[in-house]
Design a protein around this nucleic acid. Structure first.
Lengths: 128, 128
DNA sequence: GCTTGACCTTCCAGTCACTGGAAACTTTAT
DNA sequence: ATAAAGTTTCCAGTGACTGGAAGGTCAAGC
């Protein structure tokens, strides 16, 4: 399987797959012509990575999760610890964004949005 | 006012202020010794920037907002348009993160987190 | 055989908003 | 006089790609 087929099979850009090889997340074989060759198993790994990334896990978390997945002797506690930490980071981001949204939403509502220069948004930015 | 005083007055790292000069957000004068000299007005501008950044506006938005703030002939509609677009992006991010949180939260709950290898989190990552 | 086009390769640079660190200069305090 | 603190510039790194250039390879049509 060449890279564009792997890309189609996983929904990832070929560029991303090359990048993942670059940083050692996957190690596809090479044909005599130098082309990367992906096994079904590697396509499965790529899908695992795509799903983990879609859940917001960072690359290093993905590396750990992939290793745990491959490891039959893993403890689910190790997986859970990674997921919990990530969940905490996501919750912190949501909290920060929610606070921003509250303020911005108020300001957008308060601003007339017309031809005149007076603007509660600028007032807010200027004062604090 | 030297850079470290401006940093204290705004709560920004001096590095960040230098960076803002680098990209043309602010243009402090220079003393005979080459040191940057910040006026009260520029400190005010920096605080404006800090506040805008804290609300999540990108640098280019900050540049536009700063220009609008300085422009007595501005239309509040222009400010509002920037804020609304930014608000929409924040809401999209919140939606994405909230979806991640829902899935992750379920998975973390479902995982026993013990010594054994069976793990709903890995199962989820592997299947889709 | 030859050409065209689609595919593949590597490598370099850019994204965003800083942040860290090195080397060298100036100012301030002792 | 010296040491410490503050300042300067410049270069590199962050995360996770993404775009593009230059060049090699493959399959199809003439």
């Amino acid at each position: 399987m060449n890279i564009s087929d792997a890309a189609k099979a996983t929904g990832m850009p070929a560029k991303t797959i090359r990048y993942y090889e670059d940083i050692g997340l996957i190690r596809p074989a090479r044909g005599a012509n130098g082309y990367r060759q992906f096994s079904e198993n590697q396509v499965h790994q790529l899908r695992f990575l795509a799903r983990a990334r879609a859940l917001g896990f960072g690359i290093e978390d993905c590396r750990s999760l992939l290793a745990l997945w491959q490891d039959q002797e893993r403890a689910s506690a190790d997986v859970r610890a990674i997921a919990r930490e990530h969940l905490a980071k996501i919750e912190a981001k949501i909290a920060a964004l929610t606070a921003m949204r509250a303020t911005l939403s108020d300001l957008v509502t308060a601003c007339a949005g017309n031809d005149r220069p007076d603007c509660p948004i600028l007032q807010d930015l200027a004062q604090k």
